[in-house]
């Protein structure tokens, strides 16, 4: 019981600390901006640990963070194989193929306004669908290995990318297009030098949405069948064995790879679209 009370005291202290930091003299410092969410996150973890131990919750049902951390450190090789299987082979290859396919279709659609007006509504409609439901079909077609996961990812990222690239390529104004024409620029010159760079903010928006979708697609597809590795496979089998510390370890890896993936794309975006108002300081 003392542990539970300690958790409440810790919560109050940390919250008071954050309120003081957020409204006190250091409120606009960069360090404060970093410290406040960190304190919040660490407090949550500490409370989790204290409450689980204090109330004597079974570690099988809800493992404490320390137990999960230990599991992560002792099963690094397994986590690494699962990461390679799901992220590198399944999600990343599917992501790249899906983007390439969407790009090709978007460029073709760009040359015909009829096709564009037809594809854009259909694409946005399909993008709002629960596409992850195609997983059982694609697993049936492409087998249990990573190819079927990549196929699910391709289908999932294709439509958001198509919509974003097509919308992005429409971003230039008539004036700008006329300017290219007065310089006697060919279609492709205008495309590479003006319209594609102008579309970049849209494309990166699509890339960021798709990065999350890719990981979700690869993991969920493994619920429908997988060789004996992969994050989704490990999650579903560990849940069956009630080895929930392993499940949390996989979720940690998935969260980490998801945010790093997103972060890398955001970094590239900052370099490519440095001219856009949202990137200027």
């Amino acid at each position: 019981m003392t542990l539970v009370i300690a958790a409440f005291v810790l919560w109050a202290l940390a919250w008071w600390c954050n309120v003081w930091l957020a409204n006190g003299p250091a409120r606009d410092m960069a360090a404060t901006r970093l410290a406040v969410p960190l304190i919040f996150g660490l407090t949550l973890l500490a409370i989790w640990e204290l409450v689980v131990r204090g109330l004597g919750v079974s570690m099988v049902i809800l493992p404490a963070p320390s137990v999960i951390a230990e599991k992560i450190s002792t099963s690094l090789p397994i986590l690494w194989t699962d990461f390679v299987q799901t992220f590198i082979k399944g999600a990343l290859s599917g992501y790249l193929i899906g983007i390439a396919a969407a790009f090709v279709v978007a460029v073709i659609a760009d040359r015909s306004s009829f096709l564009r007006r037809g594809l854009l509504p259909v694409g946005s409609f399909v993008a709002a669908m629960p596409i992850v439901g195609t997983a059982p079909i694609l697993v049936m077609w492409y087998g249990f290995d990573w190819q079927s996961k990549a196929a699910v990812v391709v289908v999932m990222v294709f439509f958001p990318m198509l919509v974003n690239i097509t919308a992005g390529l429409q971003e230039t104004t008539n004036m700008q297009r006329d300017q290219m024409k007065t310089w006697a620029a060919s279609y492709w010159q205008g495309f590479w030098k003006m319209r594609l760079p102008a579309a970049m903010p849209f494309i990166f928006n699509g890339l960021k949405i798709s990065s999350t979708l890719a990981l979700i697609g690869a993991i969920v597809a493994e619920f429908f069948g997988s060789p004996i590795s992969g994050m989704g496979f490990r999650i579903s089998t560990s849940v069956g064995q009630l080895a929930l510390d392993m499940v949390w370890a996989e979720i940690f890896v998935a969260a980490l790879s998801g945010s790093v993936f997103y972060g890398v794309i955001a970094l590239i975006e900052r370099g490519v679209t440095f001219w856009h108002p949202s990137q200027r300081k």
């Binding site: 919250w15 954050n18 309120v19 930091l21 957020a22 409204n23 409120r27 404060t32 901006r33 406040v36 969410p37 304190i39 919040f40 996150g41 049902i61 809800l62 960021k208 990065s211 999350t212 990981l215 979700i216 993991i219 969920v220 619920f223 994050m231 989704g232 999650i235 579903s236 849940v239 009630l242 929930l244 499940v247 949390w248 996989e250 979720i251 998935a254 969260a255 998801g258 945010s259 993936f261 997103y262 972060g263």
Partner: peptide
């Protein structure tokens, strides 16, 4: 609340980049 904003918002945004769906089977079983 500024304190709430600074504490929660970064996590809310970060949570959109992670495949939360992976947690589903565990919640069901627990």
């Amino acid at each position: 609340s500024r304190a709430m904003d600074m504490s929660v918002m970064p996590w809310a945004i970060a949570s959109q980049t992670i495949p939360i769906l992976a947690i589903a089977p565990m919640i069901i079983v627990v």
